[in-house]
Simulated assay, not measured.
Amino acid sequence: MKQNKYDDPGFFHKYSRMPRSLGGLEAAGESPAFRALLPELRDKKVLDLGCGFGWHCRYARQRQARSVVGIDISKNMLERAKAMTEDPQIEYRRLAIEDIDFAEGEFDVVISSLAFHYVERFDTICRKVYHCLVLGGTFVLSVEHPIFTALAAQDWYYGPEGEKLHWPVDNYHSEGPRQARFLDNDVIKYHRTVATYVNALIDSGFRITKLSELQPNQDMLDKNPAWQEEIRRPMFLLIAAAKI
């Protein structure tokens, strides 16, 4: 199933008003952890899967990447990305992540931010990414944490006064689609375990180099007290892997 909610005018309007849509990487709380997993990008050829507004594409060029290709299924996303980009070394292509078919060793670095939980077959994507990376190339990805995706409701269990008592987890090992609510719309997310993410990478030939569940530090808590919730349960899973 290839979802494209972002070309629905109402959904895209709501998404465009989100803080991370307006403020870019600086407004995305997980960005420092994601950047910390990236290799040196100077002179590298970079592929961004599910590039959205192109924030990471432009960041890669700021870090002096040689060239960047960003793909996304959404026409609206890519139009916004192109309008925000003035760089001939960044190319945007309208393409579903599931349909990538790049040449062997075409890229040095492949990145993807918060996109793969919308993709049904992560194992297939891993094999395709492995194919298009050079030997020693890097694959860095972030997804919603499986603790977060296990239940479709994706919400706290509340007490009688509306207090957040705990984050419920159930059917963790029952992988597959979940119909979740996002921006007042029904969206399909694919739940898979941490083990499935890690083993799909290993089985494709990758070596895992770093895994992060984004534990907030004191500086993050001082700047935004809402990060306290991420101490109670992880919302993000970030993985860096190398082609060996």
Rank of each mutant, 00 (worst) to 15 (best):
M1H: 10
D8Y: 02
G10R: 14
F11Q: 10
F11W: 07
F12P: 06
H13W: 11
H13E: 15
S16P: 00
S21T: 02
G24H: 03
A27Q: 07
E30F: 15
S31K: 07
P32M: 06
A36P: 09
D43M: 03
K45H: 11
C51P: 00
G52T: 04
G52S: 06
R58W: 01
A60Q: 10
Q62W: 03
R63L: 11
A65S: 13
R66E: 14
V68R: 09
E79I: 00
R80K: 15
A81P: 12
I97S: 01
E98M: 08
I100E: 01
I100T: 02
D101C: 09
A103S: 11
F107W: 09
L114D: 03
H117P: 11
V119S: 03
L133P: 03
V134A: 10
V140C: 11
L141P: 00
S142H: 02
E144P: 09
I147C: 14
D155S: 14
P160D: 12
K164V: 07
P168S: 08
N171D: 15
Y172W: 04
Q179I: 12
D186G: 06
V187Y: 04
K189Q: 14
Y197Q: 10
N199P: 02
F206N: 00
S212R: 03
D219C: 05
D219V: 11
M220C: 02
Q228S: 13
M235F: 12
A241M: 07
I244G: 13
